[in-house]
Amino acid sequence: MTFREFILSRVQLFFFLVTLILAASAILGGILMPEKELHYYHLFSPFIIAGLCTLPSCVTYFRREPTLKQYIFRLVTQFLLTEGVVMLLISPPDNIGDNRMLFYFLLGGAVLIIYVLATLMMWYQKYLQSRQFTQQLKKLQASEN
């Protein structure tokens, strides 16, 4: 993957995260704070959070070919950094009372689900690319034979 391709994939990840964060906000907000009123400036939150959560994914860029161990280590680092960023960014509402732990637990779970979905999406994209390669390969072989 060239640096340009890497940046493009990060942009895709950013918009995917924006979508998922919006969905997670709607679901979690509906459960935890159904009466809460939001202002227009709250609409920027998914973009800010997605932007900050995309930054840790930069640790997965390698100039040289990584080993499997290095790759997994970087993925885990990325996940932990993302969890850290989200935990720092989002604080529980004042009226939550004794449910602070539950709030952080749900938040951590939501980040995990989003992370797994994003990773699966990237993998699916790669699967589609490999299928396209195979189809092009068959065409090339047919034209040569």
């Binding site: 070919e65 080993t67 790759y71 993998w123 690319q129 490999s130 390669f133 390969l137 040569e144």
Partner: peptide, 28 residues
């Protein structure tokens, strides 16, 4: 003749490839 360098140490004959599969760490 449709041979392609696919790694630092390998030259692959594309005419002999049946399929391409995704692999971990950005490889195929």
């Amino acid at each position: 003749k449709h041979f392609l360098r696919v790694s630092k140490s390998t030259l692959l004959n594309l005419m002999k490839v049946n399929a391409i599969k995704p692999a971990l760490n950005s490889r195929f």
